[in-house]
């Protein structure tokens, strides 16, 4: 049947992101959960390295520069804030303005700074691979109307953006200019242009509503279509994710990832058999990299004759 199968194949930034959205979403949920809420130094180091590597794969060298120049100072500040304001903890190192500075709060500051940068990098990957239509698919089944509204808003935004430019130009040419004058004047002109946009947007929306109604919107039992479907490779990867996640939850239940900073630091380090749980986490975090690497190897093999 025609070229249909190809039609449903979407361009993706890398091999991992071409997998089913559920797999991608689950990946980020787990990584973000273990990063944001655990603050375990080893877990943190693993997730940081993984998402950093992945962000470089996705965004190229630009990502490295951004991470170093923008994120590093923020991380340092975040690490400093905590010991300055939180005086909890039992190991007092010194006094600053008669306030105790504790080892625990310094340690906590450092890990929370690390967690912060990891979360930011992870979200930079998230923004790149979980595009709006994938998110819409994920929530479309549960909340079809809201996910449609989300899609409609996404449709309107670039349209309004282009229109605002046209309006500004049109107004410029009858001398109702927005680009000159002092700040207040410019803000006032900006508001005026926004106001013209509002009229335009609302008046034109009537036809959109009619077009929705003409195509049966409002009937009972609306479904949510998506271009994504479960292939065998998706199922295999999901099973892998599930198995690793099971191991992680087991480790969590057994207290293998315990990390308490206050009042005294108590961290469960990976020793002996418990190292397996950390290995599971590392595998999980590195999934995108592993998947991409494997894809590369396959293609290199295909390209080069034996």
């Amino acid at each position: 049947m025609w070229a249909v199968t190809g039609m449903f194949q979407k361009n993706s930034p890398d091999a991992f992101s071409s997998y089913h959205p559920v797999i991608l979403f689950l990946y980020f949920c787990v990584v973000l959960f273990f990063t944001m809420f655990f603050l375990h130094p080893v877990l943190l180091a693993i997730s940081f390295c993984s998402v950093f590597l992945y962000s470089v794969q996705l965004n190229g060298r630009k990502a490295i520069r951004f991470n170093i120049f923008c994120m590093l100072p923020v991380t340092v500040i975040v690490s400093l804030i905590n010991p300055l304001f939180s005086h909890a903890g039992v190991t007092i190192l010194f006094y600053l303005n008669e306030n105790p500075v504790t080892l625990e709060s310094i340690a906590f500051g450092i890990v929370s700074g690390g967690a912060f940068i990891t979360v930011i990098i992870a979200f930079s990957c998230f923004n790149k691979i979980l595009t709006s239509d994938k998110l819409m698919y994920l929530f479309g089944r549960l909340i079809p109307v809201l996910s449609l509204m989300f899609s409609m808003t996404l449709r309107f935004v670039p349209r309004y953006k282009a229109q605002i430019k046209k309006i500004a130009n049109a107004q410029l040419c009858i001398g109702m200019d927005a680009s000159h004058g002092n700040l207040l004047q410019r803000v006032k002109n900006g508001i005026q242009i926004l106001s013209i946009l509002i009229t335009w947007a609302l008046e034109n929306a009537i036809e959109t509503a009619d077009s929705m109604k003409a195509r049966g919107f409002g009937l009972k039992g609306r479904t949510s279509f998506s271009v994504f479907s479960w292939k065998r490779r998706d199922k295999t990867l999901l099973a892998t994710e599930a198995a690793l996640l099971f191991a992680l939850l087991l480790g969590l239940g057994l207290g293998k990832f315990e990390s308490v900073y206050f009042p005294a630091i108590r961290i469960a380090w990976p020793e002996g058999k418990s190292a397996a749980f950390y290995l599971a986490y590392a595998l999980f975090c590195l999934l995108p990299i592993i998947v991409n690497r494997r894809e590369n190897i396959v293609w290199n093999k295909l390209k080069s004759p034996d």
Binding site: D133, S151, M152, R155, T208, M212, R215, F225
Partner: peptide
């Protein structure tokens, strides 16, 4: 109505 071509095509059938 929607932001992607494929979604627009499917819109009526979803309804």
């Amino acid at each position: 109505v929607t932001d992607k071509v494929w979604h627009e095509l499917a819109f009526g059938l979803e309804s």
